[in-house]
Design a protein around this nucleic acid. Structure first.
Lengths: 104, 104
DNA sequence: ATTATTGTAATAGCACGCTATTACATTATT
DNA sequence: AATAATGTAATAGCGTGCTATTACAATAAT
């Protein structure tokens, strides 16, 4: 019993796993939007939207203060996003690279 | 210019669209987990994990107070999840049905 | 009929992420 | 050399989602 077992010896950790599987199962942007709207509060959604937008702008080399003026997100939060973009688990990186060519 | 246009006349709304596209692009649970860990705070992730677990238990017909004892989520929050499960946009429903046979 | 269980609601208090401000060391610019 | 711009940090204040408690109407069980 090491990895990916079908059994139910998880208890707490598998709750997170279940959410991740649910999210990974979302087939398109519409499904994702409806799931998010049921799962999250408006404030949470806005926070996530802001961070993702900031991550994209950081990735394009834009300045903290320029991003702040453009998005109205505080420089503090932008710095936090930047930290995860550099020292995070690479989750941002993967998706940023996937959509890299799409907007140039 | 009604639906799904390639142009950039969105400005604010497309930020949410972009996030939904990013999420929909997540290929598996691991990618989803790493993206979530970069995008969200621990408290946010825990809140989402709790709500999703509660939604599943509600869907199985479990009682508010039983769910509360099992998950240590307050009855107040459980009631809120139930409301979205019934009157929401159907985002919960879609994914619940998709994973319906998986655990019986 | 009574009692217990259930969903629902109102309240107060707490935790946490955001903003705004100010500051400062480092790097560019002039 | 002097000035400006940049990333980074500390602080205080605010909004909001959570918990815990109490309550109550409606249904189920004894």
């Amino acid at each position: 019993m090491k990895h990916h077992d079908q059994t139910q010896d998880h208890e707490l950790k598998s709750a997170a796993q279940s959410l991740c599987e649910a999210i990974a199962s979302l087939a398109n942007a519409d499904e994702a939007e409806r799931f998010l709207e049921d799962l999250c509060t408006p404030a949470e959604i806005e926070a996530m939207v802001d961070r993702w937008r900031v991550a994209q702008l950081l990735d394009q080399g834009m300045t903290y203060r320029d991003i702040s003026e453009l998005t109205e997100v505080s420089v503090t939060t932008i710095g936090r996003v930047a930290r995860f973009l550099e020292m995070g688990t690479g989750g941002y990186r993967t998706v940023l690279d996937r959509f890299a060519g799409s907007k140039t």
